[in-house]
């Protein structure tokens, strides 16, 4: 595909966990991400959803190489990132940016907003004093020129998130990883930030990887959606197909657990109630990782890992007994 911007292939990330038990020291492996593959086209948004511990944030950080993947490859504009030298990677990073969840922790309290926004330009050695660029960026994200001289503590959560977005835009990236960018914001403010992302994308044409646990926001903004469970993608496809016609039992259960803000619809729904909690990624279940909570699980699910398979409505899901 020619318009493919990002391609992630068989991405694996294991974290080592040191467990001290008396005099014995053992190493245990947390399998945060296991064999994750997907691609993102130019100007498109991929939503990455899953509950805590599903590995969605780790995937986002591996894409930017903020953490080194254990194995697998990430291709960006056709270049394999793992083969790049440190300087080459740094140069490429100007095209890949990230916006974090917590707008209070992600801005340096001692830098003016203008200095924070121009920092990426200085790091990348863009000549000039960037004052005009900062003003342009502030206006782009719906703030005003006089905000440049102020400090982060003078701003509300929603405004700070706009500052974070302005900083991410400074180098005209082709890809922005948005890691739970609206989760910390009040409901009435979230909508404005989501609209901002949409406006920026239609004006500037960048791609987003939108990581979130809020399924309704992802449904709104994403073109394609990948649902993760315990480090693996269980279902991936066009937003419309995944949401209207979920084929993996986990996707179905997850969608059914999200309360709809309408009492009549909400109370009339047939809800699938999942038992128990997500198992530990230190020792994930054999075969299909969801089988311990799945109402359809059979013997084969424990023995054989299901592969991602194309379903009639177009998406792929990894299940031996898919919903139709």
């Amino acid at each position: 595909m020619s318009d493919e911007l990002l391609k992630v292939t068989n991405l694996v990330k294991n974290f080592e966990l040191r467990v001290d038990k008396g005099a014995r020291r053992r190493k245990r492996i947390v399998q945060a991400v296991t064999n994750v593959s997907f691609s993102v086209a130019k100007g498109q948004t991929l939503g990455l959803v899953g509950e805590s511990g599903s590995g969605k944030t780790t995937v986002g950080r591996c894409i930017l190489r903020l953490i080194e993947p254990t194995s697998g490859s990430v291709h960006f504009e056709g270049q394999e990132l793992g083969s790049l030298k440190f300087e080459e990677m740094r140069a490429l990073r100007r095209k890949m940016q990230i916006v974090f969840q917590d707008p209070f922790a992600s801005l340096d309290p001692k830098l003016t907003v203008g200095a924070s926004i121009s920092e990426p330009l200085n790091v990348q050695g863009v000549p000039g004093d960037h004052a005009d660029k900062v003003l342009e960026l502030l206006e782009l994200v719906g703030l005003s020129a006089d905000h440049a001289q102020r400090f982060p503590h003078e701003f509300s959560g929603g405004q700070r998130q706009r500052i974070g977005v302005a900083r991410a835009l400074a180098l005209n990236p082709a890809l922005i990883v948005l890691d739970e960018p609206v989760s910390a914001l009040d409901v009435s403010i979230q909508a404005g930030i989501v609209n901002l992302f949409e406006d920026l994308q239609s004006r500037l044409g960048m791609s987003y990887v939108f990581i979130a646990h809020d399924l309704s926001v992802v449904r709104h903004i994403a073109d394609r959606v990948a649902v993760m469970y315990l480090g693996k993608i269980v279902e991936i496809g066009d937003q419309e197909a995944v949401y209207s016609n979920p084929t993996h039992p986990y996707t179905k259960a997850l969608l059914s657990a999200v309360p709809v803000p309408d009492p009549k619809t909400e109370r009339a729904r047939n809800r699938i109630m999942l038992e128990g909690d997500v198992p530990s990624p230190v020792n994930p279940p054999s075969g299909c990782r969801f089988r311990t909570r799945c109402w359809k699980a059979q013997e084969v699910c424990a023995q054989e890992e299901p592969m991602l398979t194309v379903r009639p409505s177009g998406q792929m899901s990894a299940c031996h007994f898919p919903e139709s």
Binding site: V187, S188, A191, V194, N195, S216, V217
Partner: peptide, 15 residues
Amino acid sequence: LASLPRPGKQRLKPI
């Protein structure tokens, strides 16, 4: 109520 995302792609209405 108006600011919540709902199925469909209509633009969100923030306060």
